[in-house]
Design a protein around this nucleic acid. Structure first.
Length: 199
DNA sequence: CCCTGATTCGC
DNA sequence: GCGAATCAGG
């Protein structure tokens, strides 16, 4: 494998996004993290530092994209994680701003995610014991962000991806599986055991 | 032990 | 220029 323009560009982008060398190496394929680091240095973009040293706490990589002429104008309208956003609870006359459908349409609850959530095997037709385990484990979870996941960290998602309160378990995986022991327990269940849950 | 980036140096 | 080996750290 060689550093084609495309690969270099991808490297630059991912590095700029704060991805680790090993992650970049995986995505590129055919190179090791050493190769990536070496290249990064040769390209002279080792520092993600322009002038503002700053901040450990707020990774949130902003744009800072190079003035590429061929770039799209405004690619990201920014997607705020959509916070709680309470509705105007205390009802009352909320002025008169919506003429047309005058009805007191109180948007009761804001839909958490912009899109349907994946079928998270949440409580229901799951072995109660396994479920209990999960509850315990989630207290010990490392609460990793997406970017912190590796092949050895449990990838079980917790919370609503649309909010700040979202993270991945992150505990050591059961070798070969994508989840830790507890989460494997709820993720992979023999059909036999989920058979008759009565109600 | 898992991981991170930084540096060196033979190729 | 390249990247494995090594170093230095979390």
């Amino acid at each position: 494998m060689s550093w084609s323009d495309e690969r270099v560009e991808l490297l630059k982008r991912l590095w700029g996004e704060g991805q680790s060398a090993s992650q970049i190496a995986k995505e590129l394929g055919g190179v090791t993290r050493n190769a990536v680091i070496g290249k990064v240095h040769r390209l002279g973009l080792s520092n993600r530092n322009g002038s503002a040293p700053a901040a450990n706490a707020a990774p949130a990589a902003p744009e800072a994209e190079a003035p590429k002429p061929t770039d799209k104008p405004a690619p990201k309208p920014a997607a705020k994680p959509a916070a709680p956003a309470e509705t105007v609870a205390s009802g009352e006359t909320a002025g008169a701003d919506s003429p047309a459908s005058a009805a007191p349409v109180r948007v009761k609850a804001i839909i958490p995610a912009g899109q349907p959530l994946p079928p998270q095997p949440s409580a229901n037709e799951i072995d109660p014991e396994a479920l209990a385990k999960v509850s315990e484990v989630e207290k010990k979870a490392k609460r990793l962000s997406l970017m912190e996941l590796t092949e050895r960290t449990c990838k079980w998602p917790v919370g609503d991806p649309a909010t700040e309160d979202f993270w991945f378990c992150g505990l050591p995986v059961q070798t070969g599986k994508p989840y830790c022991e507890a989460h494997v327990g709820v993720a992979f269940q023999p059909m036999s055991s989920r058979r008759d849950r009565k109600r």
